[in-house]
Design a protein around this nucleic acid. Structure first.
Lengths: 250, 250
DNA sequence: AAAATAGTGTCTGTCAGACAGTATTCT
DNA sequence: AGAATACTGTCTGACAGACACTATTTT
């Protein structure tokens, strides 16, 4: 949560209808993953340093209050947060879960709706610089281990990483980390980075092609050795589920 | 959501801190499943018929506003809703997802945190009568097909049923539908009811015992024919994930 | 020719599903 | 004895993982 209210919110705005009881705060946070430098990384933002701010100066997930007049629904709100921080328009975006309690925000009872997104690493290397010094790509595992994010964002990040790694075992999720078109060796590399282990080439190819979610997009004009076939996703909006998980013979 | 504020909320209560912008409503809804009469059923409550009430008289999922002073966190709130409607203390309860938008509640922007629960059918056949005429067990599939629940509860119910059936293919979830101790044939029957198809006995037994999540609890004093071994769950709080899914040879 | 990368063929162990068989109770 | 239910044994086909092989490019 980036609990800094957008400037477009009128300061004298009142609740939707006058409630007769206290309302929790409602926020949306987005765990944005990418692969940069052969590592799984997450986008973090630094919280403002004002004295009345919660967790001043600490790193946090991008996010913030739901804006009742601007956000038609939770997904739109998540998309807005993601666009504001990264410039990316239509990434892979899925709901992760929600965290709500009296204790997680010092200002009072709050509930956040967490999403997780996968975006193409190289796209963002540029946008990031444009966007500010208080935004950074951070390798995921050390960030989880430090457990020093604002609010309960370390918990959320950990849950997101677990969900991602778990789903990578049996879905086509890593395809969303690559710019299209991509080759099967490139895709395999994304799997290996996220899973942290190597994957058999033959089985990998059989599996990907059998799942029938890729369209051929011509041979790559080789920068190296034998040219490879390139592929595009047949559907950009959802991942494919494989019938079995990757499972090295143990 | 049962948008009828609890009587314990003071009518003059104010938001936690005075917000300078409109806050969405925050609710929790619980999809409570059980197996009754060899059918998967869901608990519904009828909305009050007051004129200013949203969806008066319509059936809805049990739920309602988060009560900032009573609910320490979302899970506690879900547990409270479930206890209020069913009397069940520690069921299987897992987060399903959240639904939030400007349109889903006529009173204004609202977001609900949906949970789903599995409880023992026979426990509730009793409690239900005690609880009121505006509560009912309803077979799941016809309810989904009618799509006539209040708010977006038909969507939520559908998502819950899909998640349940999907997880039943590769987890021990149906064990939470039975009172302990139970026999393997009884457990197999729960699988068959939820999945809507028969399951091979031998494979089923091998799989359950290999997963090593059951403790023997002595032979049942037979009401019929050969006595069966009974079992208890080693852990009451979480389901076991099997390495593969049930998958009839096609 | 050698190196590097892309892609294929083949073998084999595992294991889930099918189904037939055995075991223990009741009437 | 027969029926009903609980449980076990065995066969087999599918298939994923391992790994050796071929193919096409660059230097």
């Amino acid at each position: 949560m980036n609990h800094k209210q957008s400037v477009t919110t009128p300061a004298d705005a009142t609740p939707v209808v006058s409630p007769k009881f206290p309302l929790p705060y409602t926020t949306v946070d987005v765990v944005i993953f990418t692969v940069l430098k052969d590592k799984l990384q997450v986008l973090l933002v630094q919280r403002p340093s004002g004295a009345e701010e919660p967790f001043p100066g600490r790193w946090a997930l991008p996010g913030g209050f739901v804006h009742v007049e601007r956000d038609a629904d939770l997904l739109a709100c998540a998309r807005r947060k993601l666009l504001e921080k990264t410039g990316v328009v239509s990434p892979y975006l899925e709901q992760l879960g929600s965290w709500g309690s009296a204790a997680r925000d010092p200002r009072g009872w709050s509930a956040t709706h967490a999403y997780f997104a996968l975006i193409v690493g190289t796209d963002l290397a540029l946008t990031q610089g444009a966007n500010a010094a208080d935004v950074a790509w951070v390798p995921v595992d050390p960030a989880i281990a430090r457990r020093d994010l604002a609010f309960d964002h370390s918990d959320i990040l950990q849950a997101a990483a677990e969900r991602l790694r778990s789903k990578v075992e049996y879905t086509s999720l890593p395809a969303f980390l690559l710019r299209e078109p991509f080759t099967l060796p490139q895709l395999q590399h994304q799997y290996e980075v996220v899973l942290g282990r190597s994957v058999d080439k033959s089985g990998f190819r059989t599996r990907m092609l059998a799942a029938d979610f890729l369209d051929e997009a011509g041979l790559v004009e080789g920068q190296s050795n034998r040219p490879a076939m390139t592929y595009r996703l047949r559907k950009r909006d959802q991942a494919v589920v494989f019938p079995r998980t990757f499972r090295p013979r143990g």
